[in-house]
Design a protein around this nucleic acid. Structure first.
Lengths: 166, 166
DNA sequence: GCAAGATAGTTTGATATCAAATTATTTGGC
DNA sequence: GCCAAATAATTTGATATCAAACTATCTTGC
């Protein structure tokens, strides 16, 4: 699983404007801090990349394709954690922008494969460079706690992500 | 800022079905683990609460109202981090379900205040109890690292949430 | 006191998401 | 071989979100 899928229903929100601070009830809740950190961190990334180039799942799709060379929409759907139907419009947009190329599968008329164009590869590299810069900032913030942080986050994902969800 | 607002554009997705594991490129990225942990954790909460009772911002709205007694839609918007226009339908739904009550402000014909009904209070308590159970699981997972985890998440939120976003 | 501007809430428009229904093609059972 | 079932992708339907336009009311400046 790799990328930018969405969670429409969130438990807790980020500090929005200059409004209230964290309500007492939420002060000590991991879930709350997880949500706020994730949301603000992503906003930082999105802002750096620019809205035009960071449409919903683009970074994820391009990065997966950069690793795998060629995939079908169904494979991309599974890997990126988004519904197949959602990919239809994303792939159309990426294709219109010349970032990907579609090739019909001669062995299966229903299916086609998707691969990056040279332009798509450049876009992926550009977005990835921004992600790396962003990650460096996170590394700096985490400091010596990085390993612990990743370990705990991994345990959380493993607990809720595997046993009970699907 | 309190609740269930949404981040439509996410950087990274959760492990979806039984699909791929974490791609090498993302293995060491805090942003990725943050995303996956947040998403899977929220799914665990949503599943426990049930879809009927956990419409997008309900837990947040009800909890804020439980603390504040009475608020206007605009205040709720700021506190919950959702656009005012988005609240219109949520408040209508909560009102239809008998969970909140609206009272026109005699001093300002444009405005009204919202408060929990007794039924709304019960629903808030039910959802909160589920959130607490969920939080206990997170506490267990975090173990002795909880304090560090919350501290780092707080630093991330503070870094990206205040200085550059708004 | 009245016109200009601010503010409260709603409506509309553009996206995005998932889930279910649909269409076309391939596979499998017999 | 042929018809049923599975599969690939798309289309459609129901929600949700934000942003901008809109309506109604209140506040200000003069």
């Amino acid at each position: 699983m790799v990328a930018e899928s969405s969670m429409d229903r969130n438990m807790l929100a980020t500090p929005a404007d200059g409004g209230m601070s964290v309500p007492a009830l939420f002060q000590n809740l991991i879930g709350y801090h997880l949500r706020v950190a994730q949301e603000t961190s992503f906003q930082g990334f999105a802002k750096a990349a620019g809205k035009e180039d960071l449409k919903p799942g683009w970074y994820a799709l391009l990065t997966v394709l950069a690793e795998r060379e060629s995939m079908t929409p169904s494979e991309l759907s599974r890997t990126c954690g988004r519904d197949r139907s959602t990919l239809t419009s994303s792939l159309k947009a990426l294709s219109n922008r010349g970032l990907i190329e579609r090739r019909w599968n001669p062995d299966d008329q229903r299916s086609y494969s998707v691969r990056l164009t040279e332009e798509g590869r450049q876009m992926q590299e550009r977005l990835h460079a921004i992600a790396v810069v962003h990650e460096l900032r996170l590394d700096e913030i985490a400091g010596e706690d990085k390993a612990v942080l990743i370990a705990v986050l991994g345990r959380i994902a493993a607990t809720f992500g595997t046993s009970e969800d699907f």
